[in-house]
Design a protein around this nucleic acid. Structure first.
Lengths: 215, 215
DNA sequence: TAGATTTGTGAACGGCGTCAACATAGCGGG
DNA sequence: CCCGCTATGTTGACGCCGTTCACAAATCTA
């Protein structure tokens, strides 16, 4: 029954790059609808292929979701790096100020992405993956670094600049990450969802202040 | 438990209190499995009733999930209040120290509950509800206060004790909540899931330190 | 060129949420 | 005391989902 009805029928029996097509469809589904909207059958439908074809490229729906999650994390990394670039264009004060600006940029990028792409953000970080895989290249943005690595780098720089005592450096990423991640999730699908837009920026700034001051 | 026949057919045509039975089943399902495990058909099965009977008491699966979420928040409130009691049993230093201990207890209760009941925790706060309903009595614990109210109270006390400058009091709940909530979610179903047990307590303490210091 | 391997298809199964039509229990009013 | 009304539960069906199995076509390789 394939062919006439749905999307344009393929010329060849083989698809060409079905895996990539399914992943792209999955990303699109996650973009509007979050992880639960990543539906195998719909992804295959968009790729113009029968439902079972997906199983030649992903063992599971879960596996597809994992690939979507990785891709979403790469986009988060891109957002962070863009924010870092923006921050570093500012006139260079001393090293300490620059280190603080960089950490803040990391957080800002994270929050900006969550606001701009709530579905993808949710897909990126609510799919269970071990911390050990946080450095996996599949999660890296175009700069080659993952979100977790960008955070770690920023904290290292902060420590190097003497703005973070060495005894407080270990696991500092957990503290910073938690705060920013919590705000992001509360704002996009938690009880803070309806927060008036003019409050959002202020709360975000204050949160980043709190982290910088309390770390 | 009056006549809780799981598979046993009911004696009477009427169930008695089906709404409560469905809610109880839903809570149990959420407890092991999180919100996505709250399945209408399974809840009715456990109540010994046909699937559609649920629609006499909940308009939707979503409505049942909402009720489960409220119940879970009430349990969070209980965990917080217990921690507050524990903290207030300590010899009373000055008012400032007691205010700090109380805020810390609120956070500790939240984190303890998340660790002890990850499924219910997830159900409590990842079901979208507006901030305006955070004071709804359906979310209150046995002490009559919701988690959000307990946090607000603790921050008020901190401000009264002069430990939080008045200009930083507004919206401070968002900052504190975000940090603790973020750590909880990252630890129970995020990338921090596998965190070694001996690290957990330390990270939690440091996070609470950070909040107290940075607020 | 023939056989092996990869990749996509078709049909089917059980589970889900939900709707529509029906049936009974138990109440209040005549 | 009966009668009908409403609240509550049942049966059956629909369309969606993920997943499995057996099969067919395309491509690779020997």
């Amino acid at each position: 029954m394939s062919g006439t009805g749905e999307a344009a029928p393929r010329a060849t029996y083989r698809h060409g790059d079905l895996r990539a097509a399914l992943l792209a469809a999955g990303i699109e589904l996650a973009r509007d609808g979050g992880p639960s909207a990543v539906v195998l059958r719909e992804a295959t439908r968009r790729a113009g292929v029968s439902p079972n074809a997906a199983y030649r490229h992903f063992t599971d729906r879960q596996a597809l979701l994992g690939a979507v999650s990785d891709a979403a994390q790469a986009l988060v990394a891109d957002a962070m790096e863009e924010e870092i670039r923006r921050a570093s264009r500012a006139p260079g004060d001393d090293a300490a100020a620059r280190a603080h600006a960089r950490l803040r940029a990391v957080g800002t990028g994270y929050l900006r992405f969550a606001r701009a792409e709530p579905g993808l953000f949710h897909a990126a970080f609510s799919v269970p993956t071990a911390l050990g895989t946080s450095d996996s290249p599949s999660k890296a943005g175009s700069g080659g670094r993952t979100p977790y690595q960008l955070l770690t780098d920023a904290l290292d720089a902060l420590a190097s600049a003497g703005e973070l005592p060495p005894d407080r450096r270990p696991h500092a990423e957990f503290l910073a990450w938690s705060s920013v991640h919590g705000l992001a999730t509360l704002m996009i699908d938690g009880p803070l969802r309806g927060l008036p837009a003019e409050l959002v920026a202020g709360v975000e700034q204050r949160l980043l202040d709190m982290v910088a001051k309390g770390l």
